[in-house]
Design a protein around this nucleic acid. Structure first.
Length: 153
DNA sequence: GCCAACGTTGGC
DNA sequence: GCCAACGTTGGC
């Protein structure tokens, strides 16, 4: 079982949206490095930190569980979708998604606090200019973040 | 809204 | 294969 962090813009899809839906596909990943991890490494049962980006209160806000492994992201074939990709061949889809299930909210751990935490220094998230939207989280990093919430397993 | 950093595109 | 131009990400 592995740990991950997924970024989302809460104006588009927030942890609250996920709670309402309980299970949701995670569409719209359009970066090859992130896609490759989703495709090759993200497995059913893995746990995912949900991170709110591009908003007033950026940080880790909840936990989800992977319930379905990589399958084609159909939004790439929908001309009305912001995730449409004209160059993706339906016979060989370029982009994939996974499904995740809501687990719980966390007391928010802000990016500011994460940047100040030495145990998290290796995470792409805290590195300047990083745009990776799907990233692995080590056991130690996971534990450090949960400890920072003040809520324990 | 600003702007630095990044990934992608396309001409050569 | 290089690299400049461009569009996007994302914190502030």
């Amino acid at each position: 079982m592995a740990y991950w962090l997924f970024k989302t813009e809460p104006d588009t899809f927030s942890i609250d949206t996920l709670k309402q839906q309980q299970v949701s596909c995670w569409e719209g990943v359009r970066n090859y490095q992130a896609r490759n991890m989703l495709r090759d490494q993200v497995k059913v049962g893995d746990e995912v930190l949900i991170y709110h980006s591009s908003c007033k209160e950026v940080g880790v806000v909840g936990i989800a569980t992977v319930v379905k492994e990589a399958y084609p992201d159909h939004f790439q074939f929908d001309p009305d979708s912001p995730y449409f990709d004209l160059k993706s061949d339906p016979a060989n889809p370029r982009w994939i998604m996974v499904d995740i299930a809501y687990q719980r909210h966390l007391r928010r751990v802000s990016l500011q606090r994460m940047k100040a935490e030495p145990a998290l220094a290796a995470m792409p998230l805290v590195q300047r200019g990083s745009r990776l939207s799907v990233m692995p989280v080590s056991d130690e990093e996971w534990q450090a973040i949960l400890t920072m919430t003040g809520q324990f397993d």
